[in-house]
Design a protein around this nucleic acid. Structure first.
Lengths: 332, 332
DNA sequence: TGAAACTTCATAAATAGTTGCCATTTTATT
DNA sequence: AATAAAATGGCAACTATTTATGAAGTTTCA
């Protein structure tokens, strides 16, 4: 593999000039550029990014830590980030935290050790305190889907309370009064907030909150199914089910159908996230739109602006969820 | 950030000894190890992976190039790879090729420049010829979901012909004779092979292949919908639709439902891939299981064995698809 | 006690670049 | 033609580690 020395020799220019061309420095004539580029081509020269990083203390890599690599939600997010960063000539190193504290810490450690210029974290097991401490260390980072007041300018988050509120309000406005709720794990911020929004809507319409109608799931399809089965077997009274995400909603709908409950005639459903497959469920799922792609893009904008000093304005931290009406809610 | 020099100084041992401890070399006494580890801890030393890579010409990174980062298929694949490699102390750099030749080449270039120890490629735009040439260059790689005879031991692929055959055979055995087919882009190997399997099954049962009943989609949900709409508007005769993947099948089912066609009473559907959401469609989709997670894992096994010289046997290149029966096919 | 094996040290070279400085040469402007 | 500005060269220092080498010291075992 050719080195910068060989290029400089073949091009008949100095080392400094080659480096200047390579790094787009000013004060290089067209003539030199052409000579250098020709030599690079002839030698099939590829700059050694490792050596480059060592010398410049910059890797042009952004580390991404997500809970999982699969799942519609994370997929859209990764695509949003990768598209933006690639366009800016930066690159991503992706790793998964599996919503496990040890694993998340290990993942962050790995990305920091890899000398990423910055990190984008979607973590929910690691504590606020740990993240605040981390923010005092060397590698800068932003948080997706999480709000910590001590570092709010680096947080990109959804108004989950509003989302939960909008979902339940929609059900109430369609005449539902007995609304079952399948939540995410309540030790997670977003799950709690969505549930809080649900309760807020109930309160606003003077409907008593019934603890019995809460099932705590884990955001995965299967737990939606389990939640629905639980409601059915307990023979509780409800005409609608609000779910803290679409995957659990799809599981819950399957659970209802397994018991021959007609959707939405006998039971209405509403989800949360608006992932791609909501349209392909039957009936199509009404849900709350979570602009994860926009948020992911915004987080990369922050990095381009603050780490790479690109000229970018309009950084937005708070995102607003929106109701998406499809066919899974019927008025009674 | 502390360096290896400071560690050696604090521990009161030589540089070489620190390096030996760091790299698990033989001929290091327990005593030295303890001293060095204590010093590293005290200094909060983190080995600089960049400097390490430069000196050792090894990055412990595997580059992954997939078509897309979203989509159920790729997500499962990425998870399979990441889990395996992380367990082996290796790491992944992931990038997307978007099924575009230029983009795929750029992605490979990037991963090679980043000095990945090896690559795992899921590419379909770049030509066999280019890949064969690439295989003569420095960075070793394996191919997922692709077969090239010149480098077959590095290919991990499904018997797509068998898969296409099994799907259509199932429909035929349930009494269907007029079977519409929504294929993937026919310039792609897997799409062609699946279609070939379809034709093989028809031939075996002496059913004439009807060119009119083929719609060429692009593997995305929307094109399944378009295909179904096309069949309906053309008022063709068919009692079942075979689709080259599950996403198009879900789109096609939606298309049927949009025209009030009962599934599976009036029209049966079968998919391909067995992605997670097939269970949550209504009716649940019968499909062909594609063991992508296993294949992804196997490809990392190859790398662990051949690049990192781990002791691994039983490398399997060809994978066999299996019929998964659910509720979207009715016998007539 | 002596030989062999193990352990450690000090040093140097190698990895492939970046960055900054100053001197010199070339080009452009007035 | 004088002057300023731009372009270039050459050099040295720097990045943090690996790896090889030869010499020296320490154990272990027969």
């Amino acid at each position: 593999m050719a080195t910068i020395y060989e290029v400089s020799e073949l091009a008949g220019v100095s080392l400094s000039s080659v480096s200047r061309v390579l790094n787009n420095h000013e004060h290089v004539s067209e003539k030199t550029k052409i000579k250098v580029n020709a030599a690079m081509k002839q030698l099939n020269y590829r700059p050694n990014s490792i050596a480059r990083s060592l010398a410049s203390n910059r890797t042009d890599c952004i580390g991404i830590l997500v809970s999982e690599l699969h799942g519609p939600f994370y997929g859209d997010m990764l695509t949003g980030i990768e598209t933006q960063l690639r366009a800016a000539g930066k690159h991503v190193i992706i790793t998964a935290g599996h919503s496990d504290e040890k694993s998340e810490k290990y993942g962050i450690d790995f990305l920091v050790n890899r000398k990423c210029d910055a990190l984008i974290l979607l973590v929910d097991a690691i504590s606020d305190q740990d993240l605040i401490e981390l923010s005092h260390e060397s590698t800068p980072f932003v948080l997706l889907n999480r709000y910590i007041s001590e570092m709010k300018e680096k947080c990109f988050y959804l108004d989950n309370i509003l989302g939960g509120y909008l979902a339940t309000k929609q059900l109430i406005e369609q005449g539902h009064k007995d609304i079952a709720y399948i939540s995410g794990p309540l030790k997670k911020q977003d799950a709690t907030e969505r549930h809080e929004g649900h309760k807020k809507a109930l309160a606003e319409f003077n409907i008593d909150y019934n603890e019995e109608l809460l099932y705590e799931g884990d955001f995965l399809t299967k737990s939606g199914h389990e939640g629905m089965t639980y409601f059915i077997e307990k023979q509780l009274t409800y005409t609608a089910v609000a779910c803290a995400n679409d995957e659990m909603a799809s599981g819950a709908m399957k659970g209802a159908r397994d018991h021959n409950i007609a959707i939405p005639q006998e039971c209405s459903f509403i989800g949360f996230d608006n992932v791609f497959f909501t349209e392909y469920l039957y009936p199509q799922l009404s849900t709350i739109h979570y602009p994860i792609t926009d948020m992911a893009k915004m987080s990369t904008q922050w990095i381009l602006k603050n780490i790479y000093k690109k000229d970018i304005s309009n950084i937005q931290n708070l995102f607003i969820p929106e109701l998406v009406l499809r066919d899974s809610v019927q008025s009674i």
